[in-house]
Design a protein around this nucleic acid. Structure first.
Lengths: 294, 294
DNA sequence: CGCAGACTTGACAGTACTCAACCAAAGTGG
DNA sequence: CCACTTTGGTTGAGTACTGTCAAGTCTGCG
């Protein structure tokens, strides 16, 4: 890699390059080349298994990703879909110049690459936020497996349907909610996912930067930072860098706009004062419903 | 239906009720109770058929919807998925209080209800914008058909993958683009869809109100209206109520922000003048890729 | 004809963006 | 080990895009 006009590049493209990722190839073989069975894969996805699957000989290889490493890029032909075994990742969509949008933050049990089935090419970038392990299911295997186990595709459709619904909720959130409400619900949604994974839902660590949160919610990093500080001032959460503690989950969930807003008020001749205006504006919940697969 | 405190309701909930729909039940039997075969359905979906399907006895009933009528509502248990035979509809997601988000505007060949497979209940409302006809495929039939025709679910997964990608593009658009760019690309995207259906891509009629466009793009109806006027002033389109004529598709596609902005400038003591500031800010394209199914 | 709904346009306000400075933590290299 | 750099984060000041409120036009329909 050359560094042409290093200073200028670094300065002008700073905001952009921050989201860019390591382009080195992920390790197909770690020194612990563990594999997973079909039953393992189904269990990870939360999909029902059939007894016949126990005899399935095919094993699926694990791929180890380091922080910042890229699993696949937009436009690449579909080879495999993946299931997250451990770690945290992001799905990114690049809008031609600069501005990026983060579609989701996949974690344990999530399916990666479903958007590639249409057109047989990945439609977004997948990058590891932390060291991660994913299980690769080759597309060819997928097609064969459906013949052996007829219910499998139907189960996968349900999984895809779930992601469709999640995307819809996110879109509605971005379409209708204020910055504060978006950030608040983002925190709640993370909290729920951590709880599902057996971690604490009250105290956890963000795995992504403010910039990435912003790219997910349609906000700038400054707004995200400010809003987190605001929620802290309200006593709804505690924030210290990436460490979040939830103190009033209900408030976060039901918050519609402006929990406490700092307002500069001219007080006649005396000068400028900072006033805190409290207003709840609470409303019903838009809970991100949790799968209750039979 | 009662009209309690009519005046107040009408005034305060005006913006909300405009999006609400007729709750009367859709006609399951028109006076022309036409039906479609499995091959018909697959063809409409743009999905490959197998010769064996020609012998499939099951037929799928047509449902006629009048303007404003609702096909299904959020939360209803999944009975059927539907394919649009003709007409125009909208998929709506209600965020508890008032604010609604429109996820998509399905038209001929589109699949309705895919988001219901997960949790077996519809996750959004489906309402007809115009008189429409949809073909119902009962969920039970769907499961049986996959046994008879093993490739079918796999094809359906591809269709769902397509919608996943479309939602992703929409999210990215709302996350990153200015109001002007969103409206411009919305017009382009409609144009492309009309072209695919054999209509003119240059001149067409919107089937939805400004309010509905706004609920789709995360904007207010006023902003939509203003932006359309702006694009007209730029000479990119012609607008007359719902009639759109595209004059410079390329400009619409590549536009990033502020084609022409009206700016009020204080000119010393002389008063206020309106100045037009031209600035193109064109950029690369984010074309909504069209399916090229093999 | 009159009303209701859709649309347009203006004036104004406010939320969120931009630009910028600053701080903290972590890595780098002499 | 300590300057030095880099990256991520916080916060302030000013701007502007888009929302809000409001008035008014147009069209279609009962």
């Amino acid at each position: 890699m050359q560094q042409s006009t290093a200073q200028f590049d670094a300065k002008t493209t700073g905001a952009v390059t921050k989201l860019l990722a390591d382009v080195s190839q992920p390790k197909r073989v770690g020194f612990a080349p563990a594999q997973s069975s079909l039953v393992d894969v189904c269990t990870m996805l939360g999909v029902s298994t059939s007894p016949a699957m126990l005899n399935e000989p095919q094993m699926f290889t694990h791929i180890h990703l380091k922080e910042g490493q890229r699993l696949f890029s937009m436009g690449q032909p579909l080879e495999s879909i993946y299931i997250v075994h451990s770690g945290f990742l992001k799905m990114v969509q690049n809008d031609d110049y600069g501005s990026e949008s983060i579609l989701s933050f996949p974690m344990k049990g999530d399916l990666l690459g479903a958007d590639a089935l249409y057109l047989r090419a990945y439609q977004s970038d997948c990058v590891a936020l932390t060291s991660s392990v994913v299980v690769a299911v080759p597309y060819k295997s997928l097609k064969q497996l459906n013949i052996s186990y007829p219910g499998l595709d139907s189960e996968l459709m349900q999984v895809m349907s779930k992601y469709l619904v999640e995307q819809q909720h996110l879109l509605t959130m971005v379409n209708t909610l204020s910055a504060e409400a978006r950030v608040a619900r983002f925190v709640v949604s993370l909290s729920q996912r951590f709880e599902e994974m057996g971690y604490s839902s009250k105290a956890f660590s963000l795995r992504m930067t403010r910039l990435e949160i912003g790219a997910h919610l349609g906000l700038t990093l400054e707004t995200v930072s400010r809003t987190l500080s605001l929620l802290k001032d309200c006593g709804y959460i505690d924030v210290d860098q990436r460490n979040i503690t939830i103190k009033d989950g209900e408030a976060l969930r039901t918050l519609k706009r402006t929990p406490v807003r700092k307002k500069t008020v001219k007080t006649g001749e005396t000068g400028v004062t900072t006033v805190a205006t409290a207003s709840h504006w609470a409303s019903g919940v838009m809970t991100v419903t949790t799968p209750a697969l039979a």
